[in-house]
């Protein structure tokens, strides 16, 4: 096994972008997350692995408050998310805070979710313009640059339905980058793609990792996790069963659960 590329990791407290503490989330009777702690410092690339239904997407969605955890706290750059209770349900109390966080934690979805009524470039400049109030010309300029960077500079004026899956996902990554976010959240960015299209998206993510961007990536692609991540988290049944550097997690696996999971996922069998 080759060593995964490691970056200089001088993690001080002020470098913490996102911290989750004791996150609990249940849907009715079903406890999906049972007390999760996670810290993403600047430059961290955290790969989250685990079997289907283990709660990976739910955790990611809690991180940018698309879901509200019933217990636990979320800190963004040290700022704690404020809550209040409404009809026995805890919800965030400060809408501005929520939007500020979301604008800083750009999400890339498994199904791309490009806005279907907009061209690729319009998709990329939408949130910078409406949310960040960026100057239209500047936004377009940056948008074109980013689309070129992910290799689809020639597709600016196409509609999402005219692009291949891999191109759509790269456009979605450009859209996330255009927010100049503090961290990016990827939810299985390559799972909906054919292997050859998958490679082009992995390449883009790899470039972003090399630039030192903070990312949390939920993935079934163990090779990408190994190559790209600085830290790997194995989630099982709503708890973190094992975590560590890719080397620790993949080459010196401790828990039987993870061994079993890695075996069944094939890559490191």
């Amino acid at each position: 096994m080759p060593q995964s590329p490691r970056r200089n990791q001088s993690v001080t407290q002020s470098d913490t972008v996102l911290a989750l503490r004791g996150i609990h989330k249940s849907y009715g009777e079903l406890d999906v997350l049972k007390g999760i702690d996670l810290t993403a410092s600047r430059g961290d690339v955290i790969a989250m692995i685990g079997s289907s239904g283990s709660g990976k997407s739910t955790l990611l969605r809690c991180a940018n408050l698309l879901e509200t955890p019933q217990q636990g706290d979320i800190f963004f750059h040290g700022e704690q998310v404020k809550w209040h209770t409404k009809r026995h349900q805890r919800i965030p109390s400060d809408k501005h805070q929520v939007r500020r966080m979301r604008a800083n934690l750009s999400m890339v979805f498994q199904q791309f979710n490009l806005w279907a009524h907009m061209t690729v470039l319009q998709n990329v400049i939408e949130a910078p313009q409406t949310v960040l109030k960026k100057d239209p010309d500047e936004a377009r300029e940056l948008g074109r640059q980013l689309l070129t960077k992910v290799g689809i500079g020639d597709k600016c004026d196409q509609y999402p339905s005219q692009l291949s899956g891999g191109q759509q996902q790269r456009a979605a990554i450009a859209r996330a980058l255009a927010m100049e976010p503090a961290a990016m959240l990827f939810d299985e960015p390559t799972s909906a793609l054919d292997p050859e299209l998958e490679a082009e998206v992995v390449r883009v993510i790899q470039t972003l990792a090399e630039e030192g961007r903070t990312m949390i990536i939920v993935t079934h692609d163990m090779k990408m996790a190994y190559d790209v991540a600085t830290h790997v988290i194995f989630l099982h049944d709503g708890v973190i069963v094992e975590e560590g550097t890719p080397d620790q997690v993949f080459n010196n696996t401790r828990s039987a659960r993870l061994k079993q999971f890695l075996q069944s996922s094939g890559t490191f069998g």
């Binding site: 940018n64 698309l66 809408k95 979301r102 750009s106 979805f109 979710n113 279907a116 949130a127 927010m179």
Partner: peptide, 13 residues
């Protein structure tokens, strides 16, 4: 729903 949720995820009101 995913189209709307994506908008919210990007901070749109």
């Amino acid at each position: 729903h995913s189209q709307l949720e994506t908008a919210r995820a990007f901070g749109l009101t």
